[in-house]
Amino acid sequence: MALVEISNLEKSYRVGETDVPVLKGIDLEIDEGEFVALMGPSGCGKSTLMNILGCLDRPSRGRILLKGQDLGHLSDRDLARIRREEIGFVFQNFNLIGRISNLKNVELPMTLKETAKNLRRDRAMELLESVGLGHRLDYSPSNLSGGERQRVAIARALANDPSIILADEPTGNLDERSTSDIMDIMRELNGEGRTIVMVTHDIETTRCCNRVIWMRDGTIQEDAS
């Protein structure tokens, strides 16, 4: 069984009196351990697909299963639980909370899951060390460079050991050096068997992916392994 099974997925938004379709019947399967790049021009629907996959939005029609569970029919509470336990988000603009330390930022998903204090502290320290920021635990994210912030964000995404990592242009705001650092980490994670779906505009970053999906106008145009 595939980790993610999407069939005939449609999403449209209501603008005034009319429905504007954004996703027009997507069929897609993602297996465990895959590193998928999602590419396409702006407005092609890749962010919408990521939002639905990340349980931040619901499909208008069709089916989406994560580990066999239909995401289209879950309550808000259950969707929040899946975001917390099954999904790790990495955003283009990092989305860290500036007024708490890096350690607390990484602990936050575990805090929401009500993990015991000492366990989550140990785990957060371990994760920050693994991304090379063991010496920046008590710093505020605002004192870090863009590349460092994104590493904190990756550590946070891994906190609850999710089934899938969704990265929305993770290197979009980074310089070349940091981009290469982040992609190294991504590759390592994939090497450990983690499933990653990454939206990107940078063809260079797709090198470490084992599958590239091209979208256009709400449909999948090409799916190349």
Binding site: G54, R77, R83, R84, F89, N95, P109, L112, K113
Partner: peptide
């Protein structure tokens, strides 16, 4: 607002 969005994205419930 942004912080609340982040909290929700990483799994905070409405009740939280």
């Amino acid at each position: 607002t942004h912080e609340i969005g982040v909290m929700k994205a990483i799994g905070a419930t409405t009740w939280d």
